[in-house]
Design a protein around this nucleic acid. Structure first.
Length: 424
RNA sequence: GGAGAGGUGUCCGAGUGGCUUAAGGAGCACGCUUGGAAAGCGUGUGUACCUCUAAAGGGUACCGAGGGUUCGAAUCCCUCUCUCUCCGCCA
């Protein structure tokens, strides 16, 4: 969530930033925050003064009782009683203001970066790079949903039988290809200096709020009612929340983690005929990188993360493009996001396989994630994350792009991991 | 799932209504001491909000969370939550 002090100090920038996202009443929203904060302050000041007085009354009473001056003590008591009544009201007011302020802040998204262009949807995202050659497929090339049947490597019907639509079963060389990719991604990240973690894939409510999925995206996560927990839609949640309520020392920075987890998404309402095969699933595997950085370093880190992602895609020899998300497609919590899309040649489609974002202090403010600078001041840190990478669409692209009459060629770098070079 | 015991500061740990401004110890920082170090001695040592400010200072809240009793709560009462131990179940 945004910081009130920043909203006050740079109101104009905040108004413009929210308007960029298409929020027409941005100024009204921010004014509400500012007003609530002022009221909160005033109330708190009044309460603090009264509490101070009440504390000293209590001490006086204690002293008087000791000296046996009952009458005087009773007098002070009755004065204190009046004060207490007032304070009760002030206390209620204060928590009301605090609640409303929090609520207001929870509902305001992050301010987009200056470089983010205005747009309505993913169609307005800006392509900033294109790498690799689009393969020319032979006559009769098939989309991956046909290839997986032909080679019997992924089975959707079986998944439907045991669970439901969107939960495929990986079999034989399909399972081994996926495992090879996971290991390859993890190894690449570890080589690049990311410390590996294996987090839980269920999280509590506090974690959901910490990274901003709650309350914004409640309906998109699977909720375990009996435990009041959520299946994670991304490893970002457990990994970033490792640092909830933490004040780091300066020499612990930067924090760089990589983690592999399954991810679960309800994708409520977004199912349609345009998503087939591996393009969109309820459960999928993903390797995620997360960084925690000093504010002045975070944009250099974002660039490094993008380089890491494109490096992997190059090694896999997949053609891909990089997009800077426009204001309309930018996530609620993000300041700047780059998407990476691979070209899947048989369906002639770009598929998003990674999304790399800088959240600046938006998550850190909720998480209370700070570090001590040389003056022993607590400074909110910047959080970043990116997929490196999401598995199913990478598999779809490999299957489609690498097909030939004799089967599917495994990318060179993966052969040591798969132990075979052709799926047939 | 059943029974019991607990949650105090960076850590250990005392603390059953005002002598607590959270004892004592450890750690850490600075200073004294020393040829240098250790020991010793001294001082300091959390978070948030507010106020004041050049700086210092001052106020309030925080002893798992939230309520309550009381002039006054770490301490008493209620609810919740988490941890630990034993039993049960179990990869």
């Amino acid at each position: 969530m945004l910081q009130v002090a920043n909203i006050i100090a740079e109101k104009d920038r905040h108004v413009k930033g929210l308007q960029k996202r298409g929020i027409k009443n941005a100024e009204v929203l921010l004014n509400e925050v500012i007003t609530l904060d002022e009221e909160r302050k005033k109330t708190q000041q009044a309460l603090d003064t009264n509490l101070s007085e009440a504390n000293s009354f209590a001490k006086q009473i204690g002293a008087l009782m000791k000296e046996g001056k009952r009458d005087e003590a009773e007098q002070v008591k009755s004065r204190n009683a009046e004060l207490k009544a007032v304070n009760k009201g002030l206390g209620e007011q204060l928590s009301e203001y605090q609640k409303r302020l929090k609520q207001a802040l929870y509902n305001i998204p992050n301010i987009p970066h200056d470089s983010v262009t205005v747009g309505k949807s993913d169609e307005d995202n800006v392509e900033i790079d294109r790498t690799g050659e689009i393969p020319q497929l032979a006559e009769g090339a098939q989309p991956h949903w046909d290839l997986i049947k032909k080679y019997d490597i992924i089975d959707f019907e079986l998944g439907i039988k045991i669970t439901g639509a969107g939960f495929p079963v990986f079999k034989g060389k399909g399972a081994r290809l996926q495992r090879a990719l996971v290991n390859f991604f993890l190894d690449e990240a570890v080589k690049a200096g990311y410390a590996e973690v294996q987090p839980p894939i269920m999280v509590n409510e506090a974690s959901g709020y910490g990274t901003g999925q709650l309350p914004d995206k409640e309906g998109q996560m699977y909720h375990i009612a009996s435990e009041n927990m959520y299946l994670i839609p991304t490893a970002e949640i457990p990994i970033t929340n490792l640092y909830r309520d933490v004040i780091l020392s300066e020499d612990a920075l930067p924090i760089k983690h990589v983690g592999f987890t399954p991810c679960f998404r309800r994708e409520a309402g977004s199912w349609g005929s345009h998503v087939r095969g591996l393009n969109r699933l309820h459960q999928f595997d993903k390797v995620e990188i997360v960084e925690i950085r000093k504010p002045e370093e975070s944009y250099a880190a974002l660039q490094e993360m993008c380089n890491h992602v494109s490096g992997i895609l190059k090694k896999l020899a997949l053609p891909f493009r990089t997009l800077r998300l426009c204001s309309g497609d930018l996530g609620f919590t993000s300041v700047l996001t780059f998407d990476f899309e691979v070209y899947s040649a048989a369906q002639e489609k770009w598929l998003e396989v990674s999304s790399v974002s800088n959240f600046e202090t938006f998550q850190a403010n909720r998480l209370k994630l700070r570090y001590k600078d040389e003056n022993k001041k607590s400074i909110l840190l910047h959080t970043l994350n990116g997929s490196a990478l999401a598995l199913p669409r990478i598999i779809a692209a490999i299957l489609e792009n690498n097909q030939f009459e004799g089967g599917i060629k495994v990318p060179e770098v993966l052969i040591p991991y798969t132990g075979f070079d052709i799926i047939d």
